[in-house]
Design a protein around this nucleic acid. Structure first.
Lengths: 257, 257
DNA sequence: TCTTATTTGTTCGTATGTATT
DNA sequence: GAATACATACGAACAAATAAG
């Protein structure tokens, strides 16, 4: 087997492996041949193979475990329907956590999440701005790690002004039926409008470790803001997703009511 | 100058350069020191420098021109307000092309676009499905290359069922005042609802070349569908964006009308 | 136009380190 | 402890694009 001279060898090898994976020659969870094996098979050096695989890692197509091997990604892109997640109907069905759960379960994976932080903190600048808080005001923070059958797929951190959240069930580990938005509704701050701003950025070291990203891989950050009837921001959630792991869906009508 | 042993050298060097860029030591358009220069300065080999810069390229922070040097990105992330782009108000202001133009101009850059293809074709599978066309039906395609002051920032391809577009101004280079949606409205297919599905994927060679992407960099693909009052899809546009180059904004109300 | 220096792109061979089995 | 697998790094070399003369 030999490679053409037009394109770089690592690029061609990446193309070959990508094609083999999408064709199903290496199915979800399967191990690729080892780097020395691939080097021999295609007549290139090990560093060249390594670089080809680096490309597939950046694309999220494989993940590598040192000392074990290179494995094809198991979890396909997860559809996320922004509009369906926050309807009153969904809340009343007790689907606070339901949106994520449903999305994961539909793919045949087992959803789970860890609440890794709950408490009062001074908000980061970006959050203070989003919540239109004057300096010195604190917020309630709730940070969650989310998985699809072992695989980390999302990091979500919610913020509510402390002036609203103080002394309510929002401070508890379990926010109760219907979740945060139901509690906000009871407190007279029912969300009436949502905005989301998406951008790609470099992950922090913490995010990179949790989501198992390669150096140079980007994450999608969704800044989700819930506005109440008086058009005040009452809750902000930052979702951090591996770029390749999601399908995001939005919907709106031509004439805003 | 020396590097710590904890993290990889290329990772540390990438961090150093990223910090220098965000700090403004190298402003937009400025050249970084050459690779041999950086290698000498930080006591590492040239391949190591090259790999550090590869990370910054994947992040979209710099672009490299062989034989010339490495330059800091000039165009910052461009805000794109999905909901504002397609209102009747915007159309009637004659802002068919206005949304993109406004977004670019607000950043202080000069928008431009090339219409590179107009005509009747057999639709790709994805498009045929989105338009709910039975096989054998053709579509009108309009493909555009879009720039912010020389820098390619987007590739947009629109599709309208040939049964609707045939013999109308949609076949012309200039679709006239208000653009495609105004013509569709005149034909009794005024869009009443829009959906967008976003995913990250590997670019084709053509996209990669036009958007000047590095091997391993991903693009955002937006599948935009316009639905008429009878909830039939009447137009589909595929937007292909460099992942790092855009800020995407969506908005909706809690209670769908 | 041709030549030469500069700059990045790519690749190899080799070596060492670290994690897993 | 030994074998296997991936991670990183260096030095060297040549290719290709660009710029300057």
């Amino acid at each position: 087997v030999s490679l053409e001279p037009k394109k770089s060898q690592f690029g061609q090898l990446a193309d070959i492996l990508r094609e083999a994976i999408t064709r199903g020659e290496y199915g979800p969870g399967a191990a690729l041949p080892s780097e020395p094996e691939l080097a021999a098979r295609y007549g290139v050096s090990r560093p060249t193979v390594n670089r080809a695989i680096l490309i597939l890692r950046n694309e999220g197509l494989v993940h590598v475990e040192r000392g074990r091997g290179t494995f094809v990604r198991e979890v396909p892109p997860i559809p996320r329907f922004a509009n369906r997640r926050y309807t009153r109907a969904a809340r009343e069905r007790g689907q606070a956590r339901g949106a994520f759960d449903t999305e994961i379960r539909q793919l045949g994976f087992e959803p789970s999440s860890d609440l890794v932080l709950v408490g009062e903190i001074a908000p980061p600048t970006m959050i203070a701005e989003a919540l239109q808080l004057s300096s010195g005001k604190s917020v309630l923070v709730r940070k969650r790690h989310m998985f699809a059958s072992q695989t980390p797929v999302q990091l979500a951190t919610s913020y509510v002004p402390w002036s609203i959240a103080q002394g309510t069930q929002l401070e508890q580990k379990d926010t109760g039926p219907g979740g945060t938005y139901s509690r906000l509704a009871e407190l007279g701050h029912a969300p009436s409008r949502f905005t989301e701003t998406l951008r790609a950025r470099t992950p922090s070291d913490e995010e990179s470790a949790f989501l198992r990203l390669t150096e140079g891989q980007l994450v999608i950050e969704i800044l989700h803001i819930a506005w109440d009837a008086k058009d005040k921001p009452v809750e902000v959630t930052v979702h951090v997703l591996p770029t390749h792991q999601w399908l995001l869906h939005y919907e709106w009508s031509a004439e805003p009511s």
